[in-house]
Design a protein around this nucleic acid. Sequence first.
DNA 1: TTCGACTACTTTACAGTGTTAACTTTACGC
DNA 2: GCGTAAAGTTAACACTGTAAAGTAGTCGAA
Lengths: 212, 212
Amino acid sequence: MSRPSSSELRRAILDEARRVLVENGYMGLSMRPIAREVGCTATSIYLYFESKDALIHALIDEGMERLQEQFQTAVDGVDEPRRRLARLARAYLDFGLENPEYYEIMFMLHPQLMERYPPDRYRRARRNLEMFHDEMVAALGPAGWDGRDPKTESTLVWTSLHGTVSLLIAHRVDVSIDREALIERAVRQALRSLDDPDNAAIEPPQSDAARN
Amino acid sequence: MSRPSSSELRRAILDEARRVLVENGYMGLSMRPIAREVGCTATSIYLYFESKDALIHALIDEGMERLQEQFQTAVDGVDEPRRRLARLARAYLDFGLENPEYYEIMFMLHPQLMERYPPDRYRRARRNLEMFHDEMVAALGPAGWDGRDPKTESTLVWTSLHGTVSLLIAHRVDVSIDREALIERAVRQALRSLDDPDNAAIEPPQSDAARN
DNA sequence: TTCGACTACTTTACAGTGTTAACTTTACGC
DNA sequence: GCGTAAAGTTAACACTGTAAAGTAGTCGAA
């Protein structure tokens, strides 16, 4: 709508929203206080963002760009494919733990909000995560995939890292556990699919959890 | 507070709240509609739950109990330690995917809410997850832990599973990925720490993400 | 039988939310 | 100086969680 209008106010709103997000989390993000701080009325925000959702979506976009940058600098100058992948994994964890507020809206927020996130934009944003895919393919070479789907495998790396980040952020992990040790183990575990000999006797499904 | 009072109304409120939660998710959970459906006023709810948080906490307790039951039936009659662990993992995934609304409030909700969850009750609830710990210790025996902390390792199993469940629930996983294949791989990956020879050259930390 | 007291519940009200529609101010080209 | 369009405001709506005060019903003792 007001794409190229790019007033200063728009930026100020976005900055303040991010600040509030950092300080109070998603739940503490309210239009009127943002407006007050920025020096306008709440309804003025609607000149630049068509809803609160849209405002948050803009912040998600910001977060995705930052992650992308951290990914880039993480692998910059590193050649060996396995090391590149390891650094990506580490960068992902670091990003989440250092920017919990961004991480929360990017990957942890309730499904409803995400369903309202324009699908094409999310697809573009998720480009980030395809770096895992590309680097894995590079690390394994064309030979390594006996029957396994690269997309599934790279998604698995992601979900594994996400589990650790999100539970740490949400303070669900027992405080008696050494944080740094867990993180290091998480990276190791995420990357171990590279060496997977696909052994181990695993159970068949116990119920029908594959719908939806 | 009103622990033994156990009016029928309390149960009705809880039932309706759960129904709404299933249907509309956490965000759609509002006091007045619950009251209307149950046949009382919104403020009456406060006779049985001291806040909306407390109401949700009660639902979390319910969910934890259900998970506990599913865990029990999953390992019931299974003796071989590795198989027991595998079934636990599978049960966890199934629970999350079949009860996304419970899973959301139990493990995905924003940190603020969890911080208000009475710590002792959460500790008790998390007893569930200690089953991972116990079964892992049983599966590996006293010999297997060369330098590794069992608590960290079992937490790692949990975070790994959680990553998969939560991203699937939140519809963040690319739809082109075979859901069941991902799930199966997730179980496998989670349990692989049992066989870990602790190899692989891993990067040192890139930044200070171990605070908090 | 009447007087408390207690329980269960309601009414009213407050301060807050996101959002819409209508109104006003400001700036700019002719 | 006038018309127009953009930028921002005011007022309002329907909603939220929740606190305080008030009310109806029940039960036990005098």
